[in-house]
């Protein structure tokens, strides 16, 4: 950067590359996790949630479905967070 640049009105925002890198790292990790998952997973999640909500009032985000692939087997993990004092709906 030239000496006179210090007196110029417009200065580039320093370190925007750092922001880019951080955003990419998160994004790519997320993309990679979703890769190889069966395409029915999101729908499975909403349907399971619908069934549970018939009985217990739980949050929309309380169900997580994850899918892992190892050499010999595949794991479909279902995690439901129930409220502290479940209020039965019926």
């Amino acid at each position: 950067m030239g000496l006179l640049d210090y007196f110029r009105a417009t200065q580039p925002i320093p370190g925007s590359a750092t922001v880019a890198k951080e955003r990419l790292q998160i994004l790519v990790a997320h993309d990679r996790a979703a890769r190889g998952c069966p395409s029915y997973l999101p729908q499975l999640q909403t349907e399971i949630l619908a069934v549970i909500r018939k009985y217990i009032d739980i949050d929309m985000n309380a169900v997580t479905v994850s899918y892992e692939q190892s050499d010999a087997h595949e794991v479909l993990e279902l995690n439901i967070i129930l409220p502290d004092s479940p209020t039965p709906l019926r």
């Binding site: 950067m1 580039p12 925002i13 320093p14 925007s16 590359a17 750092t18 880019a20 890198k21 990419l24």
Partner: peptide
């Protein structure tokens, strides 16, 4: 632009 921190560097891209 890489030197000014405005552009991802080779190392940044390689890391990802």
């Amino acid at each position: 632009r890489v030197q000014n921190g405005e552009m991802l560097s080779v190392d940044d891209v390689q890391e990802i």
